[in-house]
């Protein structure tokens, strides 16, 4: 029986879709069977980030309204057999789906996959309620900006009311080391102390992420960029491994990480 995880943030543009694509890819790299569900109906992006736009035939609305079977709407990833995508509809809107329908859909997928990642739309309205309905766990994405942290806090409050079995996890995206050092951005410690939930990972603001999205290749697939290592670390933590946080003190990347690993042991 698989586990469903919703990836949400409240605020738009903090990297929910990118994170969903990359954690999905990283989990697939680790040999897990993963299904990604895009619930951002009317504004679908997940397929684009994964480079699967051209392969979509049916979508989530088609499945819910009974126009096709669930299996035929799933798009197989071009890199892995074990990574599937259930795309959102581009022509409908969020009010055509009910939380109950999504919840049923996720339950149907659970026996076939290890992880089901649900990409949530921005906001706290119908789309959010739909996305959260089917989730066992939640990952909240925030950037080190005050507005983003405020919205993440709000979302965590709403998730707590939702009565999930586990407290939500936190991923901090778009970290700029020099701005944190100069005090122009919230630091990781400040964010964690404000939101007081478990930190699942941090991701540096990296041009590689943008470049990879542009080419429809999730960055997690690359062997040694900082962002890809961060995403793969998050995936390992989801699987229950204990992986220390990546250091970003200098630009040596992997060497620094190795040193830190040794230093910690």
């Amino acid at each position: 029986m698989g586990e469903s995880i919703v990836i949400t943030s409240g605020k738009g543009g903090v990297g929910k879709t990118t994170t969903t694509a990359n954690i999905g890819t990283a989990l697939a790299l680790l040999g897990q069977k993963v299904c990604l569900i895009d619930t951002d109906i009317g504004l679908r992006n997940l397929d684009v980030v994964l480079g699967l736009e051209n392969r979509i035939i049916f979508n989530l609305i088609d499945v819910i309204e009974g126009r096709c079977k669930l299996q035929s709407a799933l798009v197989k990833d071009k890199r892995f057999d074990c990574l599937h995508l259930l795309p959102a509809a581009q022509t409908s809107d969020k009010n055509e789906v009910t939380p109950k329908a999504i919840s049923k859909l996720v339950d149907e997928l659970k026996p076939d996959y290890d992880y089901i990642l649900i990409d949530c739309p921005a906001g706290i309205e119908q789309g959010y309620k739909n996305a959260v309905a089917g989730a066992d766990k939640a990952i909240v994405i925030s950037t080190p900006e005050k507005s983003s942290v405020r919205d993440a806090d709000r979302i965590i409050g709403l998730l707590e009311q939702e009565g999930l079995e586990f407290a939500p996890y936190l991923v901090i995206n778009r970290i700029r080391k020099h701005m944190m050092d100069s005090g122009d951005m919230l630091t990781v410690d400040e964010i964690v102390s404000t939101l007081s939930i478990e930190l699942l990972g941090i991701i540096l603001d990296d041009e590689d992420v943008i470049r990879a999205s542009h080419h429809g290749e999730p960055v997690a697939f690359q062997p040694n960029t900082k962002a890809s290592i961060s995403y793969r670390n998050i995936a390992r933590r989801i699987l229950g491994e204990s992986v220390p946080l990546m250091s970003f003190d200098n630009d040596e990347g992997i060497m620094t990480k190795v040193k830190k690993l040794l230093g910690m042991k």
Binding site: R150, D151, D153, R154, I156, G157, L158, E160, S196
Partner: peptide, 8 residues
């Protein structure tokens, strides 16, 4: 005993 979060 809880965190009173934004909006609550």
């Amino acid at each position: 005993m809880k965190t009173i979060r934004s909006g609550q």
